[in-house]
Design a protein around this nucleic acid. Structure first.
Lengths: 201, 201
DNA sequence: AATATAGAGAACTTTTAGAGAACTTTCAAG
DNA sequence: CTTGAAAGTTCTCTAAAAGTTCTCTATATT
């Protein structure tokens, strides 16, 4: 199990190699992570090597490689992205075959999924039985769609607006329903909507 | 076997790991359970380890793992499914922690993704810039949403209806647009819609 | 009364994180 | 091939954060 800074280090190395096609210098990692001592970085890199996620060529400049590339790659959740489809036009092919990775699309720590019941967000394209991906957080910006807990008991999915006067408005995206105004202290935000998905099977 | 608070502790740990993909701190558990002393939490955690439902890496920060998941696949595209959300009701928790696997959800051979342009399916909850997952096939059943090629040049996303008289109807789900009837031989189905997803970032 | 559960909190140890100096090795320019 | 700057390695030191080990209290149950 990697510590927080070890994960940061590994992430930096992965991005660096993806971009520059070679291992980073210890000092580049240090700069990238906001660390001043390359000795510290060296310790993290050794630890990553010990846990097997990178391989080292000891002593060599830029002697960091990712371990086992293509190791569990075949299971990557990817689908080909063929292009755009618009009514009345041929499918507009996207040059050089792109892939979309579902993991990149939706997955991150602190996210979870809820299944939607009811039609309160139907005008925002969120239908009953859709899955919504929510990222845990306690604040939201105006216009974001949030999971909010009212009076510690009612949880709802609504568009959020802070009225800057001690009240907030929760707006259902359904022309048959009315926006609701609450004292801010009655509303606790549990997360903001970051994704939505639906299966037709 | 487990006392009430030990069960609470175990439940919190399970949910935390599902959401954040790492063990919680003792103090995070304490806050989550409304306990002020991390020493108390430590006692519960030790007890859980002794009864075998979790595994500890003694001394380590965040050194709590669920038993039997020592070599869990970190790269699996999964998100925790916490429950259902309906306007006006608390989140209805789903008993025993479920996970949804994005790969199972969408990925299969013969599927591809298209990015939607235009508003022709807006009443079906498919908005511009949504991604739609399409399964290649040449026939469709009534009511399915299809990618159809008209006169070998126009590709559209519409709901499909076979009129059983040598014609088919392509129905846009948009109250401002009209269904269109074509001779069946002018319409070639390229695939049927099996999924849809949207990112709000 | 004895025991199990539940919690507060202090004291202590270990892990994690970082700074920086001294040293050795690599590598490219001359 | 030499050589010196650049890069990697190995230390020691510090501090904050997190885990561990206690003792003490309280309440409910047998």
């Amino acid at each position: 199990m990697l510590s927080r800074r070890e994960q940061d280090t590994y992430s930096f190395i992965c991005h660096y190699i993806a971009e520059y096609r070679q291992g980073p210098l210890l000092e580049e990692i240090a700069t990238g992570l906001g660390i001043k001592s390359k000795g510290v970085v060296h310790r993290y890199v050794q630890s990553l090597a010990k846990s097997g996620v990178i391989e080292l060529m000891p002593g060599r400049h830029r002697g960091i490689q990712l371990a086992g590339e293509g190791n569990h790659d075949d299971s990557a959740p990817v689908l080909p992205l063929l292009g755009r489809i618009a009514a009345g036009a041929p499918i507009e092919a996207i040059p050089d075959q792109q892939e979309i990775n579902l993991a990149d699309f939706f997955i991150a720590p602190g996210r979870f999924v809820l299944k939607v019941q009811g039609e309160s967000m139907i005008d925002a394209g969120i239908l009953p039985d859709d899955m919504v991906v929510v990222e845990s957080c306690m604040t939201a910006r105006n216009g974001e769609i949030v999971v909010a807990l009212v009076d510690q008991q009612e949880a709802t999915l609504k568009r959020f607006k802070n009225n800057q006067d001690g009240t907030v408005t929760l707006i259902p995206e359904n022309s048959n329903m009315q926006p609701m105004v609450f004292d801010a202290h009655r509303v606790h935000i549990q997360g903001v909507l970051v994704g939505q998905m639906r299966s037709y099977c």
